[in-house]
């Protein structure tokens, strides 16, 4: 391979990649017509591209299926959120009643009453609001 070949190789590469302008393509083609070693290099470049294509795909060590699993969507109201909000509501109610002068025994009684009535309140939301209001207004 001559010094001229070395200089022309980037231009030939452009031509092989299909990105050469008309002038570059003309120079590359002219040179390739008369230069056997550059023809050989172009053939070897093609085979390198083929080799890369062949070597590209790799199988995952744990099997491809093990690579990815779609994450489960988060529920809008998780049990944690419900638990924390329930605890906060209860604490707030307790603090309010204590502040209003309710004794601790009465408070515990109310709490038990509230827990026992929860199922019913959950089924009938209107009753739930009404009952809460009744208790609150009574103790207030």
């Amino acid at each position: 391979m001559t010094e001229e070949c070395q200089k022309l190789l980037p231009l030939i590469h452009d031509w092989v990649e299909g990105t050469a302008d008309e002038e570059t393509a003309f120079i590359a083609q002219q040179h390739l017509r008369q230069c056997f070693s550059c023809q050989q290099v172009v053939r070897e470049w093609e085979s390198i591209a083929e080799e890369i294509r062949a070597a590209f795909l790799v199988t995952a060590s744990h099997g491809e299926k093990g690579i990815w699993r779609l994450p489960k969507p988060e529920p809008l109201l998780s049990w944690r959120v419900l638990g924390i909000s329930g605890l906060l509501t209860t604490s707030l109610m307790g603090a309010t009643l204590l502040w209003q002068g309710t004794s601790l025994t009465d408070l515990l009684r109310l709490l038990v009453q509230w827990i026992l009535g929860t199922a019913q309140w959950m089924i009938f939301p209107v009753q739930w609001v009404q009952r809460f209001w009744d208790i609150f207004s009574h103790w207030a």
Binding site: F56, L57, V58, T59, A60, E64
Partner: peptide
């Protein structure tokens, strides 16, 4: 997945 994994590896 295979092509993505191949490129990453």
């Amino acid at each position: 997945r295979e092509r993505t994994y191949s490129l990453a590896v």
